[in-house]
């Protein structure tokens, strides 16, 4: 295996895993919160929030990447103050790759978690409150355990999406080997060079293994959830 990939390609694999993990871990609580709002609360702007969450799913990824550059770049509306006040740079860094991946994965995570929350009978939450449980305790002891399989399924789906993210990432952070080059951008880069087919095939196989593994895990959790909801 070692001779199959050169160090920059190994770096791309490691970076892809790292970026996807970070993106998933940070997006999951936010996605859970948004999914809960969309599933359980009615408030003005609910449809707008729903649309906004789904936007990355329907926009061309390059457009999302461009918008990120405009908003989060060092001169961007958000990126500017972020750099001036905290010294945080996102554009052309691995952190930016994680942000792009998180945003692209977000709608998929919200959809999966929202389905799980909608499958929980709100009557159970009412029952828990009549027994003296605060809203936080109700969420932690009733809602969360019951949506856990859905939550994990959403996380895995999001992780897989983050692994495969290309358009928004390459637009926002480019593909700097060892810094922002992920598996997809490494494959794209290798395809521009003659004679690199073995490395391309190797990276493709790695991608397929990750994606299939994630998909199977997600299916497994989805089945468990169906069983749990059926009682």
């Amino acid at each position: 295996m070692t001779e199959l990939f050169d160090p920059t390609q190994w770096a791309a694999i490691r970076l892809s895993l790292w970026v996807s993990c970070v993106a998933t871990i940070f997006a999951l609580p936010v996605a859970t919160w948004v999914a809960y709002l969309l599933a359980r609360k009615s408030f003005p702007g609910r449809q707008l929030l729903n649309g906004l969450v789904h936007l990355p799913l329907v926009l061309p990824p390059v457009v999302t990447g461009y918008l990120l550059l405009v908003l989060m770049g060092r001169q961007g509306w958000i990126g500017g103050p972020l750099y001036d006040v905290f010294g945080i740079t996102l554009a052309f860094r691995w952190t930016g790759a994680a942000l792009a991946a998180a945003i692209m994965a977000f709608p998929l995570m919200v959809r999966a978690i929202r389905l799980a929350i909608e499958a929980v009978d709100p009557g159970l939450e009412d029952a828990a409150r009549t027994l003296g449980a605060s809203r936080t305790r109700v969420f932690g002891t009733i809602t969360l355990p019951m949506i856990l399989p859905g939550l994990l399924a959403g996380a895995i789906l999001g992780f897989a999406k983050a692994l495969g993210e290309f358009g928004a990432t390459i637009t926002f952070v480019a593909a700097i080997p060892g810094q922002t080059q992920t598996i997809p951008s490494a494959i794209y880069g290798l395809l521009q060079v003659p004679g690199e087919e073995p490395a391309v095939v190797g990276l493709v196989v790695v991608s397929i293994i990750f994606a299939m593994g994630a998909l199977l895990l997600s299916e497994w959790f989805a089945r468990r959830m169906a069983k749990r909801v059926a009682g």
């Binding site: 009978d121 009412d126 605060s134």
Partner: peptide, 20 residues
């Protein structure tokens, strides 16, 4: 007073036991 502070025990028609 919020539900959780009312100390009103409630037996629902469909029991609403926690399945997990």
């Amino acid at each position: 007073t919020p539900t959780q502070k009312r100390r009103a025990g409630y037996v629902f028609q469909d029991a609403r036991l926690f399945p997990h």
